[in-house]
Design a protein around this nucleic acid. Structure first.
Lengths: 334, 334
DNA sequence: CTGAAAGCGCTTACAG
DNA sequence: CTGAAAGCGCTTACAG
């Protein structure tokens, strides 16, 4: 009733709603300058803002993208989310973010909500959930999908070369002379963990170091698990002289445990982490780690999304390379 | 054309769209069980999903909330965002998140997009931007606003009692015998910084410690600034024996600088931070700090939003209390 | 250069 | 218990 809509603007400007729409969308469609000015003035005076819902209903485009992640509070995701959001924002897209905790129920619930809100696309990060049932829904609604990390779905993805990254990290320790290199990780159901374990093994093989299951510890991706891992490893007969941790939180927890056990890092225990969270450079000794460019991953995923939305061909997989950042905790002479 | 909409479902089930709508919205409106079942079957077979845009256009409700923050990559915001999103999700709301970098241009751009998308409400966190021009827009579009932190706007807000938190942190140091307590902070244009400075001063006064401007250092909320602060303070004639840092990143940067200068923490320099980011408990010495319950702040803000959306009275200000977490860096005997 | 009309996909009084 | 109709606020052929 009292709502300001395109009809009100048209009335005030003394033109039709078609003309208002043309001024609004600022296309190349010809509008007489005087008319345009009348319309602009009416818009200004009424404080009119076009209703994007009505527009979206007609055009079948919401300029909104869903971002499905395990947990924004996990240090890996703020940077990634920021990368997605920055690129989206540059192109007039907004991001709805969803925290699944890798829970299948929650994930399906979010996907459903995003479909009903008719997002133009969904970026899915972090494995652990099976979306194969939703694939037909995505195609039915023409929802573009971009994946981050390894999934068992046939959509374009942005991936880190985890095998190579873990290989390089392990080799760094082997080349410093270590023969008892432990591997501590989050849940082995995650493909990233599987890949890092493969890289670790390949490196051991290359350095003719025998594998030892007692040096492999699986927990969660938390400081607590890293702490527990060191306690467990050093309670065993075969003690490691070095640890490759599959994320920095594990490595930092491990470092805390080592110090509490009276072990010197890196002299008694060398440590390499993974992720290069900001704290890695501020702990003492500073943590040697694998840098994952999370912002770049997010930004790249959103770039692929834009490509897909433009109807262009999207590369199947884009690999983002990691970098080993050597600091004090690995005991390198550098 | 080929799109599955409510008309297709009605055709297939042999009923009117009114009936389909009633089944869909599952109200208390009576529908004969047999009819309901036919409709549900048609929905299932067609893979129908209601179009939330059309619904929103009619009901003037999008079940979407905007969250405007400075930067999700800043450690303060992931927890807060998660709190907002969890409560939102429980009530079938989704969150669009926007990173402003405290930039006025960007902020206005986001607010505009959110208004055009007709979000039901906007939660604005982090000061530094003036939204007074937008106030009339918010009321025109009936957009509910909830603020986090101190702003100069007349909307309900969730706030941390920064004065008291800083007072308690400073007093902790004073009571350990320190008389040269430095205050290092982010930009003093921020109300949170102003409040923490006020709390620091009040505590000094209570302990009859004279203020000394040379012990006050203003920088950014970064590790780099904390590092630089210690270098600067110790290059001066009046050296502090303790530092109260207005966030943990500053404190951790300060700790790194202290170690690099050969100072022992806490024996030569006691440190108290603010925020209790997860790393505070894993550095050695572990950092004494003020815990801000960021998740609770976000969750509370979203609760207030729900109250506001329900048309109920919203309290003007909800204070969230902080807690001093005493660890090793302050040198407490505890 | 401008306008009348159809239609995007829903919900909800109103009538039966 | 069910249906026909109006309307939410836009865009875009189509006609002039």
């Amino acid at each position: 009733l009292g709502n300001v809509n395109i009809v009100r603007v048209a009335e005030r400007a003394g033109v039709s709603i078609s003309t208002v729409s043309r001024v609004l969308n600022d296309t190349s469609y010809p509008v007489k300058p005087a008319t345009r000015q009348k319309v602009e003035q009416a818009i200004e005076e009424l404080g009119y803002r076009p209703n994007h819902l009505a527009r979206g209903l007609l055009l079948k485009k919401t300029s909104t993208i869903g971002l499905v992640i395990p947990d924004i509070a996990n240090p890996y995701y703020p940077g990634l989310s920021r990368g997605v959001e920055d690129v989206a924002s540059e192109h007039q897209y907004n991001i709805i973010f969803c925290n699944t905790d890798r829970d299948t129920e929650k994930s399906k619930h979010y996907i459903n909500a995003l479909i009903e809100k008719r997002v133009d696309g969904i970026i899915i990060a972090g494995g652990g959930t099976d979306f194969s049932e939703e694939v037909s829904t995505f195609s039915q609604f023409n929802t573009k999908i971009i994946l981050i990390g390894r999934h068992n779905l046939a959509f374009p993805s942005v991936q880190v070369d985890n095998v190579r990254a873990a290989h390089d990290a392990t080799s760094h320790l082997a080349e410093l002379g270590h023969r008892h290199i432990a591997f501590i990780s989050g849940p082995s159901m995650l493909t990233s963990v599987q890949d890092r374990l493969a890289g670790y093994r390949r490196s051991l093989a290359e350095h003719t170091i025998a594998e030892d299951d007692r040096l492999i510890y699986e927990g969660k991706f938390t400081e607590e698990s890293g702490y527990a891992a060191v306690q467990s490893l050093f309670a065993d007969a075969v003690k490691p002289t070095a640890i490759f941790a599959t994320n920095d939180r594990l490595a930092l927890g491990a470092m805390a445990a080592a110090i509490d056990l009276g072990l010197r890092v890196p002299q008694d225990l060398a440590l390499v982490g993974f992720d290069n969270i900001i704290m890695a450079s501020y702990v003492r000794p500073a943590l040697t780690t694998v840098a994952i460019p999370t912002y770049e991953i997010g930004a790249t995923a959103m770039q692929l999304m834009l490509t897909s939305l433009a109807g262009e061909t999207v590369p199947n997989t884009v690999h983002i390379s990691t970098r080993l950042i050597v600091r004090e905790s690995s005991g390198s002479k550098t």
